[in-house]
Amino acid sequence: MAEATIMVFRGEAHQGGEEKEYTVPVQEGMVVLDALLYIQANYAGDLAVRWNCKAAKCGSCSAEINGKLGLTCKMRMDSLPLEEPVRVYPMKTFPLIKDLVTDVSWNYEIEKRIPPFAPPEGELTMYQEDIDRIQEFRKCIECFLCQNICHVLRTHDRKDSFFGPRYMIKIAELQMHPLDTVDRTELLNGDGGMGFCNITKCCTEVCPENIQITDNAIIPLKERVADRFFDPLLWILRKLAGK
């Protein structure tokens, strides 16, 4: 049976860490999470790995494999060059808890700052063509790979100024909803930090649900921010219309 060398980051919060080498037998159809669970079962019972559904739907097992971001339950071992060691690291953008588990609670704090869906009172009617567009955003499984790969958060650590792609999707879902009554463009241009995104599309490339984050959420929101804050012609028209 073929074998693979897995180099797993082992460490704890505030204590740093290092790579540890493990040898794992490779079976047909095996994914990286299988290899990690093999290590946990046979070599390192204290290896911390967050996982749940093993079907690429819960978004729990995000990690960095050979420097590429993905769900460990979705990344097949036979897609990796097994003649070299496979290096598995936790998500870089978020603080380490232990081994491959990071503290992603910052994301939930951001979510609380977004005004929720606010429909008008009375009878509510909407048509399929009005909600088709936002269905794409509801596929998000909150794996936070897009947050992890976004260089504004990952490299420049601007968590103080930018909500990140996951919450641009969330805001797009609400802002484009046919029955929503709240305007979030001021939030986007202010605390949301829309201007920090320089649309390099890594969030789209890494999304396991293939949501077109940049083209269908971020850029349309940037255009709405431009309508409101950066278009002098529209500003004059709004003034003339008394809006």
Binding site: K92, D157, C202
Partner: peptide, 11 residues
């Protein structure tokens, strides 16, 4: 993507 260049805070 996932190639880091730059320093925290200066963007």
């Amino acid at each position: 993507c996932a190639v880091d260049r730059g320093k925290p805070g200066e963007y």
